[in-house]
């Protein structure tokens, strides 16, 4: 039951959900949710491969750094979203159409 194939299937499903959430939603924060899902599926793949194939802990180090970078990315991304909301009064993706203020 617990094998590389099943882990790949789960992270594949997570990846597909992440992509679908990013496309289906028009709210910027909801898109950031999708990004978190995709980062999780990538980290899960690393750990699965390091467990079933080469059996050392390099995969753990890689997904540890993925978690670190995902946290930083969420922090900065949400900071931008809040600043964008203060300027445009809405977090709708279509409002982010112009480059200037």
């Amino acid at each position: 039951m617990i094998s590389l194939g099943s882990y790949l299937a789960i992270s594949f499903a997570l990846f597909i959900c992440g992509v679908a959430v990013m496309i289906a939603r028009k709210n910027i924060i909801a898109i950031l949710l999708g990004i978190e899902l995709i980062l999780n599926s990538a980290a899960l793949n690393f750990v699965a491969y390091t467990k079933f194939v080469n059996n050392n802990i390099d995969g753990h180090i890689m997904s540890l750094f993925i978690i670190v970078i995902a946290a930083c990315e969420a922090a900065v991304g949400l900071g931008i979203v809040i600043r964008f909301f203060q300027l445009r009064e809405s977090v709708h993706v279509d409002d982010a159409a112009q480059l200037q203020n």
């Binding site: 540890l64 978690i67 670190v68 946290a71 930083c72 969420a74 922090a75």
Partner: peptide, 9 residues
């Protein structure tokens, strides 16, 4: 969250 990640590392 920045200090949380720092302590996790």
């Amino acid at each position: 969250i920045i200090f949380d990640v720092e302590s996790a590392l």
